[in-house]
Nucleic acid binder design. Structure first.
Lengths: 204, 204
DNA sequence: CCATTTTTTTGGTGATCGACAAACAAATGG
DNA sequence: CCATTTGTTTGTCGATCACCAAAAAAATGG
């Protein structure tokens, strides 16, 4: 085993983690290959040999990001029995994530590349697809609530899921602007205040 | 009057409007001076002579943006007697603004430069300051509601203003991802559903 | 030892970035 | 007509962009 040629002098997983740090701090377009090469401790030619283009590397970085930073909110959504509590815990997990001391205060899916040069359209669409996935996950959880009799069948799942997706994404802007964890908990509490009116059986 | 030297061959206000279009489409870092020069119909040297650096131009563009695109939500906030209706109309005006056919579907204050290279920190802070102004305007309107007896004095104005600012900013992501006007109206309605619980006098 | 395979190192590609200097053009004041 | 002032045109600056070719290095199989 172990292949034939010259062995790698770096750990690709470790290098990917360092690339994540840089992309997280500066966004997609704000990060240059020189930045990446320095942070990853390898020459840019090695980046191309191991990860492909800058865009390829970014997609692999986002896969790592989704698997790590994205896990807690996703788990809160699926692992909580009560639908209402599932949404609430998902929001709290999001706040936790974007106010941590270890990393920049925003969700990469939301702010790593919302605008930019035309040539990077594919990257923006890639992230937009991820965000649509966020909303789809929320909607799926609400559907499950209806199926389990936890939520009135008359609930407007489109509106409700989009509403909470909007809050999740707005939180990143707030955190980026310096809002504290406590302040964002207040936002979450406010966002949950509408749960009763929004899920009540109409006309009953 | 009319100065001494050679007269300008272009209208600065018109050129500023064209610069706004480009910055709006591609964000701050995604827009190059070549893009601007072409859209404004003048050489880049003329841009420097008339507007200063790229950053200077962007600040003037944002002043124009705030005065035009930013006016309807701002007016809805101040010109509506009922506090609740003022917030609601502000949200509707925002949805109107970011789903218009004439311009990209997002608020520049929110998405023109949320992340990017370190050298553009000043621009990001400039926009962050504008966003904090958004929330301050909402808060000021709520304070007025309290002063006018329209809102219970016990209302948590910090949390409430931050909550609606979060929704306003989240709407830009939703619109950018293709949400229709009707879908965003549903988000606004959902966001307003919490108004009653959030403004009720506690323990009464 | 040698051929093969794979990675690293080195160095540089053309393109584009924001910004500006110098030369030229068009107006006014005298 | 001429000096002055201001704007435009032209050309280009050094830096940086994403990307890659060529050569050298380090492993394996025979």
């Amino acid at each position: 085993m172990a292949g034939r040629g010259r062995p790698r002098t770096f750990d690709p997983d470790d290098a990917l983690g360092r690339a994540l740090d840089v992309f997280w701090e500066r966004g997609y377009e704000g990060t240059s290959l020189a930045d990446l090469a320095q942070a990853m401790g390898i020459a840019s030619a090695s980046i191309y040999a191991c990860f492909g283009s800058k865009e390829d590397l970014f997609r692999q970085v986002m896969a790592l990001y989704t698997a790590t930073a994205g896990a807690p909110p996703r788990r809160a959504l699926t692992d909580t029995p009560s639908t209402r509590t599932a949404i609430e815990r998902m929001l709290h997990a999001t706040v936790d994530q974007i106010t941590g001391a270890e990393s920049p205060h925003y969700c990469m899916l939301v702010l790593a590349a919302p605008t930019g040069a035309i040539e990077n359209d594919a990257v923006r669409e890639f992230l937009a697809e991820g965000r649509r996935g966020q909303r789809a996950a929320i909607r799926a959880r609400l559907e499950r609530g209806v199926a389990e009799g936890d939520l009135a069948a008359s609930t407007d799942l489109d509106a409700l899921s989009r509403y909470y997706a909007t809050v999740v994404q707005g939180l990143s802007i707030q955190a980026r602007d310096g809002a504290t964890r406590d302040e964002l908990e207040g936002v979450v509490a406010s966002a949950m205040a509408g749960w009763g009116p929004l899920t009540a059986r109409p006309g009953v």
